[in-house]
């Protein structure tokens, strides 16, 4: 067993990391009232410390930060796609309702060359929109990765 009193580091080690203490140190602690009283002081003090109230921000931090972030892309895309689907359905219905008959005649009167032109334009537009979407996505990922 240790004859001399423990120093402050050893006392703290006994209180907070007992598993790292050697047996000589522990047996001294068991038999020495002076060292035990110092250890109990630390135990009591930090038990009291751990029971203190935790600090909280007295303002809506999440709210303030969220306002400063770019608007949710997912939310924006959802709104945009809903609007697109709705307007397509609306236009098609209106077209069929008001001009159903003329529409049926369209394919018999229109020249094959014009149909080809229409298809090429539609495909071109689709390609352009897809490329733009890809570019936007890459830019977004890059912005988050700096």
């Amino acid at each position: 067993m240790r004859k001399e009193h423990l120093n402050d580091i050893e006392i703290q080690q006994y209180v907070f990391q007992k598993e790292d203490c050697d047996s000589g140190l522990i047996s001294h602690m068991h038999s020495c009232e002076t060292c035990r009283s110092q250890a109990e002081h630390y135990t009591f003090l930090f038990k009291e410390f751990s029971q203190q109230e935790k600090p909280v921000f007295d303002f809506d931090l999440a709210g303030i930060v969220m306002e400063q972030l770019p608007q949710s892309e997912v939310a924006r895309e959802k709104t945009a796609s809903r609007f697109l689907v709705f307007s397509v359905i609306f236009s098609v219905s209106a077209l069929l309702y008001f001009g159903g008959n003329q529409l049926l005649n369209l394919f018999t009167t229109i020249k094959p060359l014009s149909i080809g032109l229409i298809i090429i334009s539609v495909l071109g537009l689709f390609g352009f929109l897809s490329a733009d979407m890809c570019r936007q996505y890459r830019a977004r990922v890059k912005a988050l990765n700096f």
Partner: peptide
């Protein structure tokens, strides 16, 4: 792109950050 999920991250870690 779902920025709203960031609010959950904040809520989960705000206590530690406040400390």
């Amino acid at each position: 792109g779902d920025t709203k999920a960031f609010r959950s991250i904040m809520k989960n870690t705000e206590g530690l950050v406040a400390q």
